[in-house]
Design a protein around this nucleic acid. Structure first.
Lengths: 340, 340
DNA sequence: CTGTTAGCGCATTCAG
DNA sequence: CTGAATGCGCTAACAG
């Protein structure tokens, strides 16, 4: 019911409709809607009435085209299901909406191959972009970054001074973590690594190598792991196989998987084996035992990223690049090394 | 380096640039880019070369304006930090990107007052919208739904036949849950309610009242709770105060908070008190003891919602409204009622 | 098969 | 202070 026949126009009203109804020109309508130039009070009132009666509001699309800006920010994340990126997205979204900006999310599903096109495509519909692409090769990143500007890189060091970035210092975080278990007396550790080609994994490995090089009395094995719960779960055998007394997982998800598998197998945590995670996702504290981890303020990370795009969007110079030093949160999953 | 002086045009190339370089008309360029009408092979090749050389690709904005569609879907969620909505968003995002659609997310921060404007505003930039607004008054929902079409409502029954919806049958789910604890011998229960004005809370209350009415031997208290972890945590006192042997939390988050608080106070779960959640968020199984809950396939819910907007977008009739019957997953947090 | 013309809906010069 | 024109970048009739 209610087609053209009824005379009721189902079409969203345009500025022309308002102009017609108020008996003024398009420009006048535009002026009062944007509050820019001064308009005669009487006319302005007529326009407002007409707009209200018609339920008019300017088409964001048309405005975007003519104004050259969409009021939208693109955000590319590797996995919407990962608490870490969810947190960053949230911080970003909050900051953006505060400034009247909208957020377009693109999930690359951890497929590094898709990230490039995904980012470029998303960027074209927005005024700026926040890129989180941990697995993208450095050369490729360096190559597309100029095409993406204004852009802020999150979660890794873009390696160029002209693009703002905020990320956690994984290396320092892991070093602290290693020190933590070392202090507990552990001398045989095992690192459950994440994606081999992920920047943050390389950072962690750097910490491990350095720590190994500066501590003759410690042995650190490295076994394949992953970034998800299942990855940690299925790595239990290889972890046990090493005979290490402390397992350093790539992140909390993997740590929780490992913790679960170990517990199922009767391995006591932390009496037999200590386990550490990374990120401090919301649920890390509720495992049994609670997970020792290196806290990364992901939401704040997102907020800071927004600050920087916002600066860029306004032609200002963004704040210095930020590198959050993760904080070790010692909880129940780590304990003194068992007596040999 | 590299301003206008260099002669290198920093401006994103337009279709006119390509046309000029290939020495053809705008329409020809448009045609080869869209692969629509047949174009002379030689010309087409010239155009492609020019486009490639210039790094040209049509402005999504301009296309959107003329085509009348943005290839973007709006999604309104109450809280990006809530695993339930994260799951739905993910299902939605996956489905959309599969069809080349983008996703614009809007977080209402559980502020029912903002949902209306947020939804309308987001909708205007997109071709359709998926609305998740649990707290919005039914009348208001009913009022804006027509303005939002094509729209799909998620997580609640929109109450009108002309708008597709997918949601969990909270009432049936909670009934099953009540039966579950009843079967375990519990006769004094307490319901930790969510937001008073949330549709899903009312559904749960309906189940409770019905259950109470049909079981003379059971008593069900209702105490204020909430939707988040902290809410459950701080409700511990009132729960204990009732003397109930089983606590039915509004959702998993609240249940986990409650579980934590109770455990801290030395109340044994499930020996002293059984606890149940709702939703089966990813971490529900990893609490200690693992949480008994009613599983809602949130990601599938998102996927189904996408199916329906997609149908709408293509002028097809969407599939029947879907109401998922949550499945009780009995885990360690529920056990036999303690002997009186 | 190709080029020319007319908008999509709006903000903004430019005259008046 | 206001209205008439111009164009944002592109697609779709419309001739040729």
């Amino acid at each position: 019911m209610g087609k053209a026949k009824t005379g009721v126009d189902r079409r969203t009203p345009t500025i022309a409709d308002v102009a017609a109804r108020a008996e003024v020109s398009l420009s006048t309508v535009s002026r009062v809607m944007n509050g820019s130039t001064t308009v005669d009070a009487a006319l302005a009132e007529r326009v407002r009435e007409a707009a209200l009666a018609l339920g008019y509001s300017a088409s964001p699309l048309a405005r975007s085209l003519v104004l050259g800006k969409t009021q939208t920010l693109a955000v590319v994340v590797p996995d919407l299901g990962n608490p870490t990126f969810q947190g960053a997205l949230r911080g970003l979204s909050d900051g953006a909406s505060e400034k009247g900006y909208h957020v377009l999310v693109a999930d690359s599903h951890e497929r590094a191959a898709d990230e490039r096109e995904l980012a470029i495509e998303a960027r074209r519909r927005c005024d700026g972009i926040v890129l989180c692409a941990p697995r993208m090769p450095a050369e490729e990143l360096d190559e597309i970054l100029p095409l993406l500007a204004p852009v802020v890189v999150i979660n890794r060091d873009p390696g160029r001074a002209d693009v703002p970035s905020v990320f956690a210092d994984y290396r320092s975080g892991l070093t602290q973590m290693l020190q933590h278990v070392y202090d507990l007396g552990h001398r045989h550790l095992v690192y459950l690594e994440g994606s081999e080609n992920a920047a943050s994994n390389r950072n962690r490995l750097a910490a491990i190598h350095e720590f190994g090089a500066t501590h003759d009395d410690v042995r650190i094995d490295v076994v394949p792991g992953g970034v998800g719960f299942e990855d940690g779960y299925s790595a239990a055998q290889s972890v046990v196989g090493t005979g290490a007394t402390a397992a350093i997982a790539f992140n909390d998800l993997a740590a929780m998987g490992l913790l679960n598998a170990l517990t199922e197998q009767g391995v006591r945590v932390p009496q037999d084996v200590s386990i550490t995670g990374f990120d401090d996702i919301p649920f890390a504290r509720y495992t049994t035992p609670p997970l020792t981890t290196a806290a990364v303020p992901v939401e704040e990370l997102g907020a800071q990223a927004w600050e920087r795009v916002w600066a860029l969007l306004n032609g200002r110079t963004p704040a210095y690049n930020l590198s959050f030093g993760p904080l070790v949160v010692a909880r129940g999953s780590t304990g003194p090394a068992p007596a040999a």
